[in-house]
Structure formats: C-alpha cells, structure tokens
Design a protein around this nucleic acid. Structure first.
Lengths: 132, 132
DNA sequence: ACACTTTTTTAGAATCATTATAAACTACGA
DNA sequence: TCGTAGTTTATAATGATTCTAAAAAAGTGT
C-alpha cells in the first residue's frame, strides 16, 4: 500500500478507511476541488464499503492539518478543499458556482508590503470572482 | 434622515429598522468588519428597540446585493462582512481570528494573465494568512 | 383620517453543514 | 494473544442561516 508511509509520516495510523480515502484523493495525476459531501458520495458510489461521514470529516481535517489538503477561502455554505497543495490561486465562477485553478504564473508575483509586528505570512491566496 | 435616499436608491423602503441598521453600519468614518451576530448584539446593546435577527439577515443580504457591503472570502463558521467596499485586501490573523485591512497600495498591482472565455472579472481578493 | 393592499418585521420552526459523544472495533507493541 | 490507546461509527447536539406565517407598518387612493 503506497499510502501507509505517507500516513505514518504524518503521525496517522494507516487504517482501512484512511487508505481508502487516500486512494480517492491522491491516486490521480490531476488535482481537484471537493466538498466533504462530494467525497462522501464518490466513495459510497465507487466502493463497496462505505465510510461514515464522521470519519470523512475527521480524516479530511487531519489531512488538512498535516498539509495534505488545503482549504479554499471562499464564501459558501460548504467548505471547499483542494488536493493541489502547491502555491496557487483560484477563479470562482459565480454563475456556475465552480472553481478553476490559476497557476502561479497566471497571476504574477504578489508583494505584501505591509508588515505586522511579530506575525509571519503563512499563505497568500487570491480569489478572482468571475461574472457573465 | 440621511439614509432614506440611500435605501431608496437600492430599492429598499426606509423603515425604522433599516434606518437603524444604516446608522450602525455607515455612521462612522472608520470602516469595519463584522458578523451578523456582532451586529445583532451591538444593536441590542446600544439601542432601546432591538431588531430581530431575521431582519438583520435580510437587510444585510440586501445591502450586500446592492454593493453597500462586501462579504470577505474566508473560511469560518460565520460569514464576515466589510463596510469598506473599496478595492482592498485582508490579513487574517489565524491565532487571534482577526481580520486586518490591507490597503491596495500595501499589496501592489495584481495582474491576472489567464482569461476565461466569455467571463468577466468581477473582483480580485487577496487573503494573507498570518501565523505566529 | 379611513379603508385597503402590499411590504416588512418578527418569533419561532426548519434546514443543513459540521462537531461532539459514547459504544464497538482495530492496530500494534509487549 | 492481551491490553490499551487510537479509530470508526451511528446518532445526537450545535450553530449559522433560511423559511414561514401571522402581526405590524407603510403606502395609496378617497
């Protein structure tokens, strides 16, 4: 199982459920955006043993804390996650309610000139809302 | 009453409640960030007649639709609004859970090089997360 | 001012995403 | 294999937001 070490490295035990979730999240070249509900339904549909919602929540939260996943800052009733954890930004198509990746090279360098005493910049995220 | 026209312009009737909400939102030089709950409690505390939560929700939603308020794209259980509707960005202090304004001049120009067919850019919002 | 229609406000119920709980289960070292 | 600490699960609890339906207020014509 290729994800056992990945989980161990992060201090997570490699359980059946977590390995299954890893498969659904990381077993593809293409990265993608998802909500908890998306993931829950995808697993239920494509796997014989369903995983409880609570486990999906817990695992996704752990993955996010460990940096395997990123939350996308967007105002929606559901939380959106991204399997692309590299430094990049997003379009948000308001009409379709769809997220589209923006490569870093599509945005150009962002320079934050203001400093806050004693605080370090953890991330810089750009959300470009699209209309029409 | 200085807000009657503002409300009318937005297609809202100038009711007692809406005028009161306007006072709390717009009667100050300084702009600020708030959640619905913040606003509800502030009005309850500083005004003899409280305004129902439902009315606050409805009015704030209307104001946001009309462009009198902006939602701040951030992942939180509550929705954050901003009375500063000019083009600007935010620091988000993760430890304190606090938002801090970033003037446009603090960030420098942001150039979105990628185009999506038939879509127009409505807004570009930067969220800078702070740690430490 | 009055009668009448339309909009708004309100309290409370409904909804829905997320988190907590506590019992059953599992991984894993001794 | 045993014991225990970590996990999973179904379900309940929480909490923000939206809905509802009745009461109140505002607008309109007389």
């Amino acid at each position: 199982m290729k994800y056992i070490e990945k989980l161990r490295n992060a201090g997570l035990r490699p359980t059946k459920q977590r390995l299954k979730i890893c498969e659904f999240l990381f077993d593809t070249q293409k990265t993608f955006h998802f909500t908890i509900n998306d993931l829950f339904n995808k697993i239920k549909k494509h796997s014989k043993n369903k995983i409880s919602l609570a486990t999906i929540y817990n695992t996704v939260r752990s993955f996010e804390k460990k940096g395997y996943l990123k939350q996308i800052p967007i105002n929606s009733n559901q939380t959106y996650f991204d399997t692309n954890i590299s430094d990049h930004h997003h379009f948000y198509d308001l009409k379709e309610g769809k997220l589209i990746d923006l490569e870093n090279s599509d945005v150009g360098p962002i320079n934050i000139l203001k400093k806050i005493n004693g605080k370090k910049i953890k991330s810089v995220e750009v959300l470009v809302k699209l209309e029409g």
